[in-house]
Design a protein around this nucleic acid. Structure first.
Lengths: 248, 248
DNA sequence: TAAAGTATGTTGCAGTTGCAACGTTTGAAA
DNA sequence: TTTCAAACGTTGCAACTGCAACATACTTTA
């Protein structure tokens, strides 16, 4: 039994990928998925565009950005990942070359699992190592559960990305920003005053919304003046307006 | 045996979702997935934002747009679907309410399949209808294959969407357009002269890239003048430039 | 073929954004 | 505390976009 990996399952055991799996099965699951743990330093690239990624990563601690950088040095943040979030599943399961860069924004620990064992084969009698690969009924059940969890993970991811497209497809910076903030406000936890936090600093926020940082700043200033938005650093509050009522 | 559904499997049998499944198994698969076929007229809405979609759709014929419409009547085309393409998997498998509208752009036939049968349970002995649900070893194998195919479908979809984000995240219309066209050129089939076709008219293309139609038109005109792009209606040719060499 | 409808291109203008440069605040290190 | 660097805000300008209105093709239908 691998203590470190078992610990990590404990950390993110409530993650989508391992739901409905009993702690007593963690060892076997770790075996099926060839799980291991790797650490990355702040600013270190976990993988580059063009690489073949053979594992799905799960953030145990720290923070990761999936980003796309072009010739000119412009970079766009595609996803911001924090503890419990998974990444790379698209490439690991689809066999595509990476089209993005993956970078640790802080010192980061990643649980790496290979989906190959549950995606490939077990074509019954054809397999020599029948006992291990085709395995017991129990193992079969585990594979089924993992596959189902993987499908749910993909669904959530896709759902999230669809929201991302929605923000990006607004034409004006102001709309992009409000679309994003409203989304974070709805999903995340806010205090009793309606104040919530985002994970980005200004430059990152601009890269996420694909706009210029200074332009974003001035748009934010305008929104503050108009009384639509309050913010200080990365804490925000959206002021709900009831214009239509006020006008009556 | 349902002839229509079997025929449809023949039509899109090479689709990702049904790969590695023998024609002799189609009937059983159709049963597992509760497959049926439904037709929609041109312009008809297949589902609205807010609906619960319980099936995955596969386009047998015709054409479908997944779109997001806001208050002001602005609409953004998220995806353009043609024969063989699947849709709705995110919502059907994730249990989310639809956040998009789905509309038939032409007379369209859709194969509908419910993923519930392969996502839910079969918790062995707990199930009363053991013979049917837990089923034979063969049925178990089919479920496994379908799940794996579903994962691959999600991977491809995600990969595709990532590209979509890349286009949208360009700041200028010109870059959005070229990013999109280059992508289509690479994926799709072009003739010996490098001419390829897109599925959109101008308004649709503008809605896809989230820009104004007339602004798009004028940008296209400029690109033509500059000799970067040739086009007529929905046929395009990108002229590869070797500026750096010419300047020497 | 005529007529109506649809798709595409063009133009002018007001408003927004990208970009570069500079000023201010903040927080960590010396 | 002082110093320094990074983050954030501001400003000015050139360029781009959204938008509305109109002009020109191309299709479809009667």
């Amino acid at each position: 039994m691998n203590t470190a990996i078992n610990e990590s399952f404990g950390l993110i055991g409530n993650s989508q990928l391992f739901s409905d799996i009993a702690p007593s099965d963690w060892d076997e699951v770790a075996d099926i998925l060839e799980a291991d743990i790797k650490s990355f330093g702040r600013g270190e690239y976990i993988a580059y565009s063009g690489d073949r990624l053979r594992y799905i990563g799960i953030v145990l601690s720290g923070r990761i950005h999936i980003m796309k950088d072009d010739f000119y040095g412009n970079s766009v943040i595609l996803t911001d990942l924090n503890r419990g979030d998974a990444f790379g599943e698209t490439f690991a399961c689809g066999g595509f070359e990476l089209t993005v860069n993956i970078r640790a924004e802080e010192d980061t620990e990643v649980l790496r699992i290979k989906p190959e064992g549950i995606l490939k084969g077990s074509a019954g009698a054809k397999n020599k190592n029948l006992e291990k690969d085709c395995g017991s009924y129990h193992r079969q059940e585990l594979v089924l559960t993992l596959l189902r969890n993987l499908v749910k993970l993909f669904s959530s991811k896709n759902f999230f990305i669809t929201g991302r497209i929605e923000h990006l497809s607004k034409k004006k910076t102001e709309d992009k920003l409000l679309s994003y903030l409203t989304d974070v406000e709805r999903r995340g936890k806010k205090d009793k005053n309606g104040v919530f936090e985002i994970n980005f600093n200004r430059q990152e926020l601009a890269d996420y919304l694909a706009v210029d940082r200074s332009a974003l700043s001035s748009v934010m200033g305008r929104l503050r003046k108009r009384g639509v938005l309050e913010f200080k650093k990365n804490k925000f509050r959206i002021i709900k307006r009831t214009d239509s009522l006020k006008e009556i």
